[in-house]
Design a protein around this nucleic acid. Structure first.
Lengths: 242, 242
DNA sequence: TAGTGGTCTAGACCACAGG
DNA sequence: CTGTGGTCTAGACCACTAC
């Protein structure tokens, strides 16, 4: 049996790891500029081209963003352009309006089998369950049920949430230092149950999009599990296949 | 008013265009290797690094694929790994089986307003309409209705289609020289109409995923418009958000 | 052993932002 | 004008594949 372990790790990937470590440690905060490529090259003792390739990959992963003439910056969910990065729902007529998040309720619970598996925590560990509605132009379009690991989001309350202007992920970023980097979604069509139907103002049984999402932070650590019910009569889920 | 026209086009992008032109002209066919980076550098009169950056982008766009020690190859839809590139439907239990495409019918028509707009052809131009079912392990899961520009797919018949073993896109690639490079999908939840219900073996009104897709070839030219109805009780649409 | 892509370097110069 | 990222070059060497 041959080992499948990588036999070789190029220098630029090691540099990339060092940059990620610095980001994780909070050395450079979201929205801030990281040192110039020349400075990083000197710091790590490699050529500028090697740093460049490391930064290239991090930029491709939406962890960093380059701005010619200005510098390289840590991506932040405060940036309004990041709002639709994880929300692929757009109106059929193309009019792009910023939706409003309305928290409904928030309570503590213990992780069951499924939540524990998805969030990679022990069964019985504390979790926080959060329900909210997304409104486009005042009309409810999305009902989300969100499961969070209690350890990471300790102290989260409905009141602090209600005071927040902006996206949930920008809230998580500033209040808990959690940076959502990547997500996987499972999408299916389901019939609206009573709860969803009432919240979204449709009849029970109306077809809805069920969007189940697991969101990851550094080191592929899952930090959010949510299930959304999307009303897709005037909106649709937009996806690009490459 | 300042012009927004690009004021600068780097050399590697010009090289990239030349490579795409060669691909379009059929100089190198799907599955074949293109010349080595050194050869291309000599041919275009630039350094290897510049060719490399051009090829990098084409590899990132899934037009080319690099194989260390062997060469750089033109991506082909014959490659079984390409099968799920545009089909994001996977079984809930993770068992990966190759679905089977069953053509139902195929007829000629004239493009209406919507088809003409989407396919960017004049209203009244000939189009081909094709219906087929995708079966996983013998069970019908997807009903597709596909609209093709008649000019591009001239001579397509149900019989030649039925003889084909493999994916629709590999069929298009070999028989019509059409290479699908990119697609956009609009997804929503709908109730099964009578036709879909019968074909998929469910009750009328069952929630189905409606997946509308426009597929593009070189130069962002649309060459396919399709609407699929996915039965998502044991399968789901999988998406990665980065 | 030869040929391919993959990495790394050092240096020059260009495009862009901001004082 | 300076500092940033962006491009381009030339050359050396490494890793992988195939003969």
């Amino acid at each position: 049996m041959a080992s499948n372990a990588p036999t070789f790790s190029p220098l630029y990937r090691q540099i990339k790891s060092l940059i990620v470590q610095a980001l994780e440690s909070g050395e450079w905060r979201p929205g801030e500029a990281i040192p110039s490529e020349q400075e990083l090259a000197a710091r790590f003792g490699v050529s500028q081209g090697t740093v460049r390739k490391a930064v290239d990959e991090l930029a491709a992963e939406n962890v960093l963003v380059r701005k010619q003439g200005k510098g390289t910056f840590v991506v932040s969910h405060h940036d309004p352009r990041q709002f639709f990065r994880f929300l692929r729902l757009v109106p059929d007529d193309g009019s792009l309006t910023q939706p409003q998040s309305v928290p409904l309720d928030c309570w503590r619970a213990k992780a069951g089998q499924e939540a524990a598996r998805v969030l990679q925590i022990p069964v019985g560990d504390p979790i926080i369950i959060l329900r909210r509605v997304l409104k486009f132009s005042g009309k409810p379009v999305v009902l989300d049920e969100i499961y969070l690991p209690g350890e990471v989001f300790e102290g989260l309350t409905l009141d602090t949430l209600k005071e927040w202007k902006g996206s949930l992920y920008s809230f998580f970023e500033t209040r808990f230092g959690v940076r959502m980097l990547r997500a996987e979604e499972h999408i299916r069509a389901v019939a609206a149950d009573r709860m969803a139907a009432e919240t979204l103002g449709v009849k029970e049984g109306t077809p809805l999009l069920s969007v189940e999402r697991v969101t990851y932070t550094y080191n592929d650590r899952p930090v959010e599990w949510r299930r959304g019910r999307y009303l897709t009569t005037q909106y649709h889920y937009h996806n690009e296949l490459t």
